[in-house]
């Protein structure tokens, strides 16, 4: 029976979630494998496990539970070891490394911030600050919408201006929140959001971080800012928070091996 691994934590963790529901249908029971000073949170791995919403949630929920009472190194979804021995083997082999990571991340949680433009507001901004665009929009409007070519021309100018504004706002948002965080990890770019940034925040100053988010929302009302956290430090398991802020991008891809 192969073993599904949720995360690695200290054996002294005050409330290891034994008997919690894990991945699978029916949900497999969460078990703890201890090895020296470390503990792996695992369950049996269901046959044919697929990355469905329910399974991803189960993974996240188990980790949330551990993370609420102590530090955990969250595994990426879908990590399966051949058996329990293989898990404890890895813990023994890399004990020092994981202990160091747990120490470095102790008392810290991840907040993930994603931001989008409120389209109408950003279009207003772009029009207001760009006379050329304003003029073309006006002439199109007077021409009953304009020709296909002038529409494309206008759209192209607007798209470029919006893109510039996205980059500018992403930087501004990151700068506004950075001071309240220990480390920053920039997530993959996409057109689904203009900013996707994770911040490592000390638990005791989480309020300050959230206050900084509120201030940023106030200063940039044309942004829709989404906050998710506190979360286990998914984006900071490697490299460490010792990295200067802003350079930890892509840290998620680092491997333990």
């Amino acid at each position: 029976m192969s073993t599904y691994v949720y995360g690695i934590t200290a054996a002294t963790h005050p409330s290891l979630p034994e008997n919690t529901s894990g991945v699978g249908d029916p949900p497999r029971q969460v078990r703890i494998l201890k090895e020296g000073a470390l503990a792996a949170v695992v369950s049996d791995a269901p046959e044919g496990l697929r990355p469905k919403r329910r399974e991803l949630l189960a993974h996240q929920n188990v980790l949330s539970e551990i993370g609420a009472d102590g530090c955990v190194l969250p595994m990426r979804f879908g990590s399966v070891a051949p058996d329990d021995q293989a898990v404890t083997g890895v813990l023994a082999e890399r004990a020092e490394h994981y202990a160091e990571r747990l120490k470095a991340l102790d008392g810290r949680v991840e907040y993930n911030i994603k931001a989008n433009h409120v389209e109408e507001a950003v279009l207003h901004h772009v029009m207001a600050s760009n006379p050329e665009i304003r003029a073309l929009a006006e002439s199109n409007r007077q021409a009953g919408g304009g020709t296909y070519e002038t529409k494309i021309q206008l759209g192209e100018m607007v798209a470029a201006a919006v893109k510039d504004k996205e980059a500018e706002d992403a930087t501004a948002l990151e700068r506004a929140l950075e001071p309240a965080a220990d480390a920053v990890s920039v997530g993959p770019e996409s057109t689904g959001w203009l900013a996707n940034v994770s911040f490592l925040v000390k638990r005791e100053v989480a309020d300050e971080f959230l206050a900084a988010v509120e201030r940023a929302r106030g200063h940039m009302p044309h942004l829709e800012v989404r906050v998710n956290g506190p979360l286990p430090p998914y984006s900071f398991v490697e490299p460490g928070p010792a990295e200067p802020a802003g350079t930890a991008a892509g840290g998620a891809d680092a491997e333990a091996g």
Partner: peptide, 15 residues
């Protein structure tokens, strides 16, 4: 985040 980040251990297989 669950899918894309977090610890990867090369001794383990990913589904």
């Amino acid at each position: 985040l669950v899918l894309d980040r977090g610890l990867v251990i090369d001794a383990f297989v990913r589904v």
